[in-house]
Design a binder for these strands. Sequence first.
DNA 1: AACGATTAGATTGTATGCAAACAAGAGGGC
DNA 2: GCCCTCTTGTTTGCATACAATCTAATCGTT
Lengths: 243, 243
Amino acid sequence: MPEPGSRSRSSSAAKPSAASPSNSIAVGAKIRHDIIKGVHPPGGKLREAALAKQYDVSRIPIREALRSLESEGLVESRPYSGSMVAPSPIEDAEDLFEIRIVLESATAKRAAKRAAQQSSGGVPDERWRMIRKEINEILAAGDIVIGEERYEDLAVLNMRFHFAIAELSGSLSFVSLLRQISGKIEWLYSLNVTRRGPQAWPEHRDIIAAIDAGQETKAAEVMGQHVRRSRDSYFAMMADRPA
Amino acid sequence: MPEPGSRSRSSSAAKPSAASPSNSIAVGAKIRHDIIKGVHPPGGKLREAALAKQYDVSRIPIREALRSLESEGLVESRPYSGSMVAPSPIEDAEDLFEIRIVLESATAKRAAKRAAQQSSGGVPDERWRMIRKEINEILAAGDIVIGEERYEDLAVLNMRFHFAIAELSGSLSFVSLLRQISGKIEWLYSLNVTRRGPQAWPEHRDIIAAIDAGQETKAAEVMGQHVRRSRDSYFAMMADRPA
DNA sequence: AACGATTAGATTGTATGCAAACAAGAGGGC
DNA sequence: GCCCTCTTGTTTGCATACAATCTAATCGTT
């Protein structure tokens, strides 16, 4: 009996958070989570059959999930040779922060530009308001999570905040590009979230304030500073414990 | 007889250029090509069964190819609803050029930095020299292709040049991010290559000269200018023929 | 006639079986 | 003893079969 076989759709059910339309997407989220948590260590081989048994699906959803994770840079594959967990993002932390600086400064600038157009144009734009409202919810949720010291959830909220800013920019290309590196960013962030998280969270309000005010240059600058502080905090943390 | 069935590995064989280790990658390249050439029009539905018959493979390689193209932004999919060709990149041309400006300026800057380290450090770095040599070949090949007015090939060479610069930066993250949008960039570029191509090609030598000289700021500036000129040429072309 | 529920068709998602390709080890030749 | 070759085992890649879901056309109701 090599494969699961029966209609075991129920198994563990996992997150009801996002709509789980297909099994393959849910499995991908689980594997991503396990990679970030270190269940699958960097450089470790990911064998399809083993994963299929472990997550109680057949190899097909596993393969699709691995391809998806490969496009996020969390997994590396070679034809006929299999997949392995990518090296720890520590290796390219410098690159990732530099990318974030240029990319997210651009999204913040764009978002501020659109905010200014919203105010002057008189066109409400329902989608903009919806995302803007969601940002307030994310910020409030973050305050609570920090109070309860649930830092793992804070890493997710942090990612959602930065995605929301990208969505405010109105550019699907920016969102898509941010998604591409979001896996490694979240991974990196989770390594330092207990130190950086509480300090960083209030800075988000400065970012959204500049955007609301429609100040393009300032929004870009504040976002750039925010990411630079994250970078510096990260490297300070690494220097503290080279154990 | 719904699927191909037999061991038809031979079919058309396509490009011997890149090693074709697995069928699915080759099929992906074909579909990408056909999307850019307009065989599959923007917004057109991509049905797996039809594609499977058309490219003479089963649905599995087709699915993998579609996922890969989805991560490049050339295809959009919804679970249980199927895939369709993404809207023409004309829609987000502005975004794509802005992304290229910030991203490729950064890669050029990094490449120049590494070039300076190469010169001073005395460490030859075999990989760097190999890529550097490949760039010369790309530039020479471009000259020939322009002479013969084979502009379709020029679009491919242009993409290879910009990838090579990213590889000179030494950062896999930058390369991976550029790959993410390379599909749409090439698509966009191919719409204007007959006008922009011959004009743009010599500019590549200015870029590599600044990199070789190790001038970080200048390399970034020249690359930024190069992309801005491409942008302006593109929008001028669109204004000329709104037909 | 317009609108909603329902059912039939088509299409995607997943499971399984088999073939191709890689990887490591045994055996023979130099 | 060392290197090369062949063989065997494991793993990925692909083809097919089937189940779950969506879509749209039909039928019934208001």
